[in-house]
Design a protein around this nucleic acid. Structure first.
Lengths: 221, 221
DNA sequence: CGTGACATGTAAATCGTTACATGATTTC
DNA sequence: GAAATCATGTAACGATTTACATGTCACG
């Protein structure tokens, strides 16, 4: 349901081909959505049948011809209707957190390896995002033009970036905690886990949670 | 592909029925996954056919009979194989960020309304999570037993919680920024947006980005 | 006597991914 | 000569959601 609005949103600013749209999804918009060409092309055809967009064939030399789409009045109305509709809180999906949840099934060394590897992957992502952000910032400064669209795309970029940074920090903190709780993975005779009282890790545990427990004082409303 | 491992992971600790599994998905595990009963039941049957889990019928009085599943050796092996496999960095989907990206199409008042409403919804979620967390913490303290599984579920909870807090803070910061950039939504004659030089918002803009720009100094690796 | 929790499913529809199909041009 | 980019699609499969179907018991 959201893909169509991603397309309509894009076409509300520029006209574009399916191939162009895919590139936007892979670039800036990758922070909040992604899609395959094999889903974009049929969706464009559907949108045109519903009169929300219109196409024109552009012959090209040296490259294959392309089909450029523009948004219609009715399409813009649909987009605005969607923008004003209340957003349901999203149901999260995070495969790495799921793996983490069940990591008592593998050895501590493997846990630490996984956490480090994932941190590395996230770091690579944040480096790429940083590049996108500084390039954008530079081009905004150069063109010296500010618009609502530029503002809103920038705040979205910020959200994506800070999300990454925080995930990396979480990896670091968690690696530290696991490192100091290694003994929880030890197996005594009979392949049974040793019984460890909570008090043995209470300080470490509370320290790890300190930044969110401090929030307790701040009022939430 | 992940649902099956969510089920196997759960069954690696306790035996459970489809109905029990659904409740876990709705509770703690909702931070990283969710699923409908209509998907869980067929998946359980598939897993049993593949010999990864085994079922037994438990007759009950006063309640309908239920089918309890236990994990097999082969199931546990599959789970561990998955836990050790490298995790692809997830492709994010966030409908609210997508809406935000295109909010130049609605009025500032509507933008601010949407941001406030979403902040409220996220806040409700964080309140619920807080309850879950303090209940868990209390019960861990009372039972005075620490295990790797408890540690790992706690770190996942923390991730979910801090993610929510940060989203709320982003809403607040963004509301402030939009508030001070209201004029970007103004329309002059001919329904055209006024041309605003970047310098007019540079200070606000840079201030909004300050926390992530400061990270520039810290080295990432 | 209605609602919600308990309990297990099937069917249909939609959404998303991977594989297949085609063909031109540019760059290494 | 191989790989990447440009350009548009179809087909098959897999994952997910929504609707349908059935029945018991507890609580107010």
């Amino acid at each position: 349901m959201s893909l169509r609005f991603g397309i309509l949103g894009l076409l509300s600013e520029w006209e574009a081909s399916g191939y162009d749209i895919k590139k936007e999804f892979d670039d800036l918009m990758s922070i909040f959505w992604h899609s395959h060409l094999s889903q974009i092309y049929p969706e464009l055809n559907k949108l045109e049948k519903e009169n929300l967009i219109r196409s024109k064939l552009i012959p090209q030399e040296g490259k294959p011809d392309k089909i450029i789409y523009t948004i219609t009045e009715s399409g813009k109305k649909e987009l605005i209707k969607w923008l004003l509709a209340p957003t349901e809180t999203p149901k999260l999906k995070d495969v790495f957190l799921m793996q983490t949840f069940f990591m008592d099934n593998i050895s501590v060394e493997e846990v630490l390896f996984k956490l480090n590897a994932y941190k590395k992957e996230r770091t690579q992502r944040v480096v790429k995002m940083k590049q996108i952000m500084s390039e954008r910032l530079k081009s905004i400064k150069e063109r010296d033009v500010m618009k609502a669209r530029i503002l809103m795309s920038s705040v979205v970029l910020k959200r994506g970036y800070e999300q990454e940074l925080q995930y990396i920090k979480w990896c670091e903190d968690t690696i530290q905690l696991v490192e100091s709780c290694k003994f929880l993975w030890e197996k005594s005779e009979g392949n049974r886990a040793p019984i460890v009282p909570f008090s043995a890790v209470e300080e470490l545990f509370m320290n790890y949670f300190s930044d969110i427990l401090e929030e307790e004082e701040k009022e939430i409303n």
